[in-house]
């Protein structure tokens, strides 16, 4: 692993963010809108639902965590799509940089893009709705790590698709997270799902993360076994994502799609 090359690729994306104010605004805008929307819904539920009684901010906290997952994945995809949109794909893949270095660079840079978007939104939730995600305490770090690994994994799977099928796979990039959201039990307990879907949902780390978030905020307890199970599941998916990315790259070299890839 050559950290100078990883830094170089990260630098390319940092320059991109730094050079455009509308781009920074765009990163902040959507999470903020999301937080305000769910903030008002959350406020309504806490006033009218017995389940959420005296547990102000559960939905809003879930929305912030889900948005963290969403932004990590989208950030990862966006950086890869930037290479396709700017027709820089061939230049990147003929540079002496390993796939593992590309994955590492995108993974590290995606966290920055995610935080630029989400930190202002999470801070705004405190004065506007009296909800602080930081109330989760130390376990928040583990929940965020798990969500980040899973978000990056989803990003990795989409980029594998982009390498394999070309820019036409772009639409899947936007749809991927919405597809998993119902199974993630973000805003409701897993018992809401039919039994057969519960089995599938438990294979995803999201259910464990959001269940624990609710346990902390409603009952003030945490089951670290569930948290580490979620980290383990996310990490397992990440490894699968890396393998699929390598296979896609190899397949793209066989089909000759790496040369001249662009819009």
């Amino acid at each position: 692993m050559n950290w100078n090359k990883i830094f170089a690729l990260s630098l390319r994306h940092l320059y991109l963010i730094k050079g455009s104010f509308p781009r920074i605004l765009d990163l902040i805008y959507w999470p903020t809108i999301q937080i305000f929307l769910w903030g008002f819904i959350s406020k309504f539920f806490t006033l009218n639902s017995s389940f959420y009684e005296n547990t102000v901010g559960i939905i809003l906290s879930a929305a912030i965590l889900y948005d963290f997952l969403f932004r990590s994945s989208i950030s990862y995809n966006m950086m890869f799509l930037e290479e396709i949109w700017s027709r820089n794909f061939t230049n990147l893949f003929i540079a002496p940089i390993r796939l593992s270095e590309i994955i590492t660079a995108l993974t590290f840079t995606a966290i920055l893009r995610t935080l630029i978007g989400l930190v202002p939104a999470a801070l705004l939730a405190i004065p506007f709705f009296g909800v602080s995600i930081f109330n989760i305490g130390i376990p928040l770090i583990f929940l965020l790590i798990t969500l980040y690994i899973f978000g990056v994994t989803l990003g990795l799977l989409v980029t594998a698709g982009l390498v394999r099928f070309g820019p036409s796979f772009e639409n899947i990039a936007w749809a991927s997270l919405f597809f998993l959201a119902p199974l993630g039990c973000i805003y409701y307990p897993i018992e809401i799902l039919p039994v057969w879907l519960q089995i599938i949902a438990k294979l995803l780390p999201l259910v464990h993360i959001f269940e624990e978030m609710r346990n902390i905020l409603i009952y003030d307890i945490i089951n670290y076994f569930q948290v580490f199970k979620a980290i383990l599941i996310s990490f397992l998916y990440f490894i699968i994502g890396v393998i699929i990315f390598y296979l896609s790259y190899s397949g793209a070299k066989n089909r000759g799609t790496l040369i001249n890839m662009g819009e």
Binding site: N2, N4, K5, F7, A8, L9, L11, R12, Y15, L16, G19, S20, E82, E83, S86, R87, N88, F89, T90, N91, I94, A95, P96, I97, N260, G262
Partner: peptide, 30 residues
């Protein structure tokens, strides 16, 4: 690292300045 390629059909990142692009690629090529 001993080779390179130029073609008008592939481009450098459009939103980066010339200086930034040269710096990024100099780093990528070590």
């Amino acid at each position: 690292s001993l080779m390179n390629f130029a073609s008008p059909y592939i481009e450098l990142p459009k939103k980066l300045t010339v200086k930034q692009n040269l710096e990024v690629y100099a780093r990528l090529y070590g």
